[in-house]
Nucleic acid binder design. Structure first.
Lengths: 165, 165
DNA sequence: TGCCTGACTTGCGTTTGTAGTAGTTAGAGC
DNA sequence: GCTCTAACTACTACAAACGCAAGTCAGGCA
């Protein structure tokens, strides 16, 4: 149930996990609210009040998190203007932010499998334009890789019937 | 920069992400200390004081987290006894816990890419017995999947020279 | 019997995340 | 100039995570 450690790492007592990328990443986006905003961004949400409603957060939390995420460079604040409306800002994922997709969906995948009472949870990931399930996991670079544009979110039947997805 | 939403989900304003697996998963293991303990478990650590030293946590935190993780069923408390020592307990990952591997390593992968100052971070994931890099990402089930036993952690050259990995 | 060590547990203080409510600002429409 | 709304900011309160220190407990050993 554990990964092999090679070469110089084999003697686990002899080294420390300094500069651990996992720890560093958790410090940056290791909160529920960050993850949910990231989720929404991956689902295509860009506007402030949509983030608020869809993550069921409060103005204060969403404001703080969006600022934090833009500071770090996970999303970008862009002006836009609908006609007859004043200029607003929208938040769009940068490539850096979009690269968190595997992490976010890996959490979803695990939750679907282990935390949903009945079936596999409300949403599932499929290959775009098909019904072929997509899994998040390790593979070699030579294997076919799917990008964000190759993915599609589908609703699980019984959830959509219950009307709340 | 966002995933396609299909069918009934297309109108993003018309549905709420209820019972979100991402949120549920974050509530269960969404802390730095949980992730680090999970990391250590994936690296093969099983004993209490090793968790403490290797995650640089405190007794209190590690104790609380290990209890929480065993309660949830991510790891199992098993008695063992070295000769001449008294009976102790070790904590080993269950399949449920090991299934978080993609999430944990996806965080590592992102941190390696974006948070490490110089190179790609101290540790990298390769295919076991080779030097072929492994990436965590979406793929279809028909693609070759790698399990925990197919993976190996290797040290990045310059980090090991600096002696602290 | 008393000491020692590994494996915890408890208590306390600080920080961070979360939640609710209220107040502010920019600019289009009237 | 006034109103209205999206997009914030500020304030308060509570809970959880974290860090430190001290205390407990079991059992092997001198």
């Amino acid at each position: 149930m554990s990964v092999k450690l090679n070469g110089a790492l084999e003697d686990r007592g002899a080294w420390r996990a300094e500069n651990c990328s996992i720890a560093m990443t958790m410090e940056v986006i290791g909160t529920r609210s960050s993850m949910l905003i990231l989720r929404e961004a991956l689902y295509g949400t860009t506007r402030f009040d949509d983030f608020v409603r869809r993550t069921k957060g409060t103005d204060a939390i969403v404001s703080a998190r969006l600022k934090q995420l833009t500071d770090i460079g996970l999303c970008e604040k862009r002006p836009y203007q609908e006609e007859g409306k004043r200029r607003r800002y929208e938040y769009v994922l940068t490539p850096k932010g979009a690269d968190l997709m595997p992490a976010v969906f890996a959490l979803m995948q695990w939750g679907n499998r282990y935390l949903q009472s009945d079936d596999g949870g409300p949403l599932r990931l499929v290959k775009r334009g098909t019904d072929i399930p997509v899994v998040i996991g390790p593979h070699t670079e030579s294997d076919a890789q799917l990008g964000i544009d190759d993915l599609e979110i589908a609703a699980n039947g019984n959830w959509i019937e219950q009307g709340h997805v």
